[in-house]
């Protein structure tokens, strides 16, 4: 089944800054059409009736609903629409509960910039999308670890990882890349998060196995 074009998206979030951000991200592709913005579940229910969105991007913390109760109400009003959770909460338990309540994915707001478009596409195709850290945490908690992939890293993060694998300190990496030490630390944290690997040895092993550096 071909996805509808454009994909009608409804944004439900009580922060208009966040809604504006999402709008900007989706506006980069013509296949998305943001048909409405709601600041609460109440507003969302009205807009669902009027706009018949294909995908609803829903925050979990709203003035008139917390947790998955809002999700349940939205799903009840729009049984055919896909609901994608876009939340600040990074505890996998939220994702588990959301999916159990019928969400087509769980995306962290800080990953929206890179992942929102693919998440909406996955959702409209009937799949379920998780932010990489959430996916990993869920997988770890349910079974063992999934093999991480270089693809989740940005260009800069790959460079930092390569530095780590070569045995450089944060300061040396910073000097080599011409950026601040604090920035390197931040990249380092991010890539550890994305890969789910917390030790230098593990990172080195991963970098070698994935061909980023030579062993």
């Amino acid at each position: 089944m071909a996805p509808p074009s454009p994909i009608r998206v409804l944004l439900v979030d009580d922060h208009h800054l966040v809604r504006a951000g999402i709008r900007s991200v989706l506006a980069m592709d013509a296949e998305f059409d943001v048909v409405g913005e709601a600041g609460s579940i109440g507003e969302a229910l009205t807009l669902i009736e009027r706009q018949a969105p294909h995908v609803i991007v829903l925050d979990l913390s709203l003035p008139d609903a917390s947790g998955v109760s809002g999700l349940t109400r939205v799903r009840g009003a729009a049984p055919d629409a896909r609901v994608l959770i876009l939340s600040m909460h990074d505890d996998p338990e939220y994702a588990r509960q959301a999916v159990r309540a019928g969400a087509s994915g769980y995306l962290l707001k800080d990953d929206a910039a890179t992942d929102l478009r693919s998440a909406v596409r996955t959702a409209i195709m009937g799949g379920t999308f998780f932010s990489p850290p959430m996916a990993r945490a869920l997988a770890e908690r349910s079974s063992g670890r999934d093999a991480a992939s270089l693809d989740v890293l940005s260009q800069r993060e790959k460079e930092v990882l390569a530095g780590i694998a070569r045995g450089l300190t944060n300061k040396e990496i910073a000097a080599e890349l011409g950026i601040g030490r604090r920035t390197v630390e931040s990249h380092r944290e991010n890539l550890m998060d994305k890969l789910g690997i917390r030790t230098v040895a593990g990172l080195t092993k991963f970098a070698i196995e994935s061909g980023l550096v030579r062993g």
Partner: peptide, 27 residues
């Protein structure tokens, strides 16, 4: 959330920048 929103806006900007500038924005 404000930081997340800023991140989204910067990400949009990131796509429109030349690669060498984009790397700085990544930082």
């Amino acid at each position: 959330q404000v930081l997340a929103a800023v991140k989204m806006e910067l990400a949009v900007l990131h796509e429109r920048l030349a690669p060498e500038d984009a790397v700085r924005l990544e930082d």
